[in-house]
Structure formats: structure tokens, C-alpha cells
Design a protein around this nucleic acid. Sequence first.
DNA 1: GCAGAAATGAAAATGATTTTCATTTCCGGG
DNA 2: CCCGGAAATGAAAATCATTTTCATTTCTGC
Lengths: 121, 121
Amino acid sequence: MNKSELKVISVLERVGGFASAQQLHQLLLRSGESIGLTSVYRALQSLLDDKIVDQLRKEDGEAIYRLCGEAHHHHLVCKSCGSTVEIEGSALEKWAKAMAEEHGYREVGHLAEVFGICPSC
Amino acid sequence: MNKSELKVISVLERVGGFASAQQLHQLLLRSGESIGLTSVYRALQSLLDDKIVDQLRKEDGEAIYRLCGEAHHHHLVCKSCGSTVEIEGSALEKWAKAMAEEHGYREVGHLAEVFGICPSC
DNA sequence: GCAGAAATGAAAATGATTTTCATTTCCGGG
DNA sequence: CCCGGAAATGAAAATCATTTTCATTTCTGC
């Protein structure tokens, strides 16, 4: 575990949900850390191999990451400024469970994020 | 519906499952059709807008497509064998829309996948 | 047959991600 | 401390799918 990985983990903790490599890099720079984009990618790849982060793809194919084992919740993410709001997901939980049961799936989990443009953008 | 779209539909029918834009282009060329890669992408984009094809992302972020005349839906993915089942998502759509509206978000989209282990695994 | 619209595709641009490579930092043994 | 090699770092170049640009060709309705 090297410096870059620690920095990436700490910013992921701060974010508390999904973020792309580029977003994480920006956030690190903005909070005063000195780190190259290359190192962010390398750290994410390594954390992925170690099963410390989860990777998903947005609809446009960009990869987004989050810490494994984050408390389960969902976000409403602004496509423009990146601000996030935690949202209530019990309806979603029920839906996911119902769909899985209907098809005989076991050990069910799910991932969901809602994207949009926030009122201030 | 133009020529390129017809060609792309016909090769998708032949394939009978998922294929990437690059693969579809190669297949069309190999089967004697004359078509540019640009047109394959354009046709796929247009078919996607018309909900005639369904787009997914491989783990490396490359887009793959297949014919699918159904409405917007989500997938139930087997964590073990990777097989996917399309699931009905109207409950999810409603949830996403409600959450976004509640917070004043515009131009809403969402991302959702349900994971589990399928009956045959 | 003809003008304007739509379609086409080659080449350039884009944007995320990866690779290369030279430099810097770390670390253990002398 | 000091030295040398190993690991880490990051800037710049390379990669690769996808999109855009733009000039050319094909349709269409009149």
C-alpha cells in the first residue's frame, strides 16, 4: 500500500459513493494533494485487484469506482457540478429483490445511481 | 430507416446476440457489404435512439449491442457465469424520477444493475 | 432533370485509459 | 550516515473506441 493508494482511499471515503478516476484526481488536487493522474489510475487498478474498490461503468463507458463495503445507499449526482445528494432507496431495494426472486437468483445485490442536473447548475 | 441501419440490423440478426460496433463492421465487410465504420456507429446510435437495439458495456468499457425491440429495461447479471436476464424496470423508473424531482434535478438518467447467482450456477 | 436534403465515409479530433521512460523517493545493509 | 537497487511517481506519448468534420455522393419530390 503506497502513498497514492492511501490518497485515493481517503478521497473515496470522503466522496462516500461512486466517482471516476478523473473526478478523484480533481478532488485530490482541489484539496491540496499533489498527485498525478497516472498515479490515480494506477492506484485504482491496484485497489481493484485487491478487491478494495468496486468498478462500474457509466452509460458513456467511463469507469466509476467506490470503496467496497460502503454502507448501502444511493446518490443523486449532478452531471454538471458533481454534487451529490443521498436518496432514499427502499422502493429500489424491493424492486431488486422482487426481480431477482422472480428469476430464481440467489445472493442478490444491486447498484443504482441517478444522474441529472441540479437546480443550481 | 436508411441503408446503413438495414445492414446493421441484418448483421445483428445474423449474430443473434451481443456484438461491438467494430465486430459488426468487420462482419459486414467480410460478408461483402461495403460500409464505413462511421456509418456503423451512426446506425447503432440511431437504432439505440429508436429503441431498436440494446446497448451494454463490457468490463473494459467497450459498448456492445443487440437487437431488442422492448422498452427500456435493466439487467439481472449472474456474478458467477455472467449470463444476463432482462428485467422489467417501471418501478425503478418511477423511483428515479420521483427522487430527482424531489430534489429539483433536471435531465434525469439512471444506472441500475441487479447482481446475484443464477439458478444454474 | 434538378435543387436541396439526407446519407456516406475518410480523415481528424476527442477523451478516457494505458504505457513508456526518466527521475525521485524509499529502504536495508554496509 | 551513505550507497545501490527497487519501488513509486508523473509528464508526455501512445492507444483505442467513439465522435465530429467536411467534402462527396445518393435520394427525393417537383
